[in-house]
């Protein structure tokens, strides 16, 4: 995906918002928001590119305290389409005026879980027909999952202690596929060399990329060399 790689930039609100804007452009979405709740205080921290008026309305009424797209969606392992909240009183309480602010109630929340019990939610909306929405979801679901975890990990690593706690723990296989990538080998070559299927190579490569907070394999190779996990070829 051609969007800001949060592992390379100064972590901060501006870049999270930039990431959210580019995500919307890339995946044909109207708005996106990310929220995480502190496991200790329960306080919600979030970033969104909604219209300012809606953000003000939402914050002034403290809607984040009851918003089921944050609190209920976090209970699922799969993305939760907001149609699941059709008869939910809290959803109605949060979104009853949304249309007046140009925000539609057609959306989906991708819940993310981190290794320390941390949870995050990436929500996206798109005003279109139900058929278009179903098609769009099928098309972008994989990219949405990757983007959600990338953003969540970046936010979680925004302080030094978390960054140290979350130093990537790479398996021998993951280092091996990265080392061969550094040597210029493609997935099929690596599959032949290691005698594992190309699909398995892809699974280890993806896992390695995500552990390193990288969106591309080239980026992951660079970071792995920087961290001394593999050798420069």
């Amino acid at each position: 995906m051609d969007i800001i790689d949060l592992s390379t930039v100064e972590r901060g609100e501006e870049n999270y918002l930039g990431f959210i804007d580019q995500l919307c452009q890339k995946l044909e979405l109207d708005y996106a928001s990310y929220a995480t709740t502190s496991p200790i205080s329960g306080a919600v921290q979030g970033y969104a590119n909604y219209p300012d008026a809606w953000k003000m309305h939402y914050m002034r009424r403290n809607l984040q305290r009851i918003d089921p797209t944050i609190h209920t969606a976090a209970l699922s392992i799969a993305p939760v389409d907001w149609s699941r909240f059709e008869r939910n009183e809290k959803f109605d309480a949060v979104f009853f005026a949304a249309n007046d602010f140009g925000v539609c109630k057609q959306g989906i929340t991708v819940p993310i879980r981190g290794p320390y019990g941390d949870r995050g939610m990436l929500s996206v909306t798109r005003d279109c027909s139900a058929e278009e929405w179903a098609m769009l979801k099928r098309k972008i679901m994989g990219d949405l999952q990757v983007a959600a975890v990338h953003l969540h990990d970046a936010v979680m690593q925004s302080d030094l202690i978390s960054r140290v706690m979350r130093l990537p723990r790479m398996s021998a296989r993951e280092k091996e596929v990265l080392q061969w990538s550094a040597a210029g080998k493609h997935q099929q070559d690596i599959s032949d060399i290691l005698m594992i299927s190309p699909r398995t190579v892809e699974i280890h490569l993806r896992s390695a990329r995500e552990k390193l907070g990288a969106l591309t394999t080239a980026q992951a190779v660079g970071r792995a060399i920087g961290l001394g996990l593999i050798y420069p070829s």
Partner: peptide, 14 residues
């Protein structure tokens, strides 16, 4: 079961 290797962690794997 993974010979004490760190597990796969991926947004696309359950």
């Amino acid at each position: 079961l993974l010979d004490d290797e760190p597990a796969i962690r991926s947004s696309r794997v359950w």
